[in-house]
């Protein structure tokens, strides 16, 4: 499954290293993390990681392969 997670604010490249399994792109004041997610557990893990990094998640959605 491919997912993208949109968070508020521009993430630094350093912080993006906290998501080594995802790519990221910054645009219009937001950062989009994207890539393949292994399963539901991984998905919830990513959400928890966002939370523990103090990130504000705006959107999370599955994207076509």
């Amino acid at each position: 499954m491919r997912y993208e997670i949109r968070v508020d604010g521009l993430m630094s490249d350093t912080l993006a290293k906290a998501f080594p399994e995802l790519d990221h792109v910054v645009m219009s004041g937001q950062t989009v993390l994207f890539g393949s997610v292994v399963d539901e557990a991984h998905l919830y893990g990513l959400l928890a990681r966002c939370q523990s990094l103090g990130l504000h998640v705006l959107e999370m959605r599955q994207v076509p392969e």
Partner: peptide, 12 residues
């Protein structure tokens, strides 16, 4: 004015 993610920016 900056638009960085808050914790990330401030912590750095």
């Amino acid at each position: 004015a900056s638009r960085s993610t808050v914790a990330d920016f401030l912590l750095a």
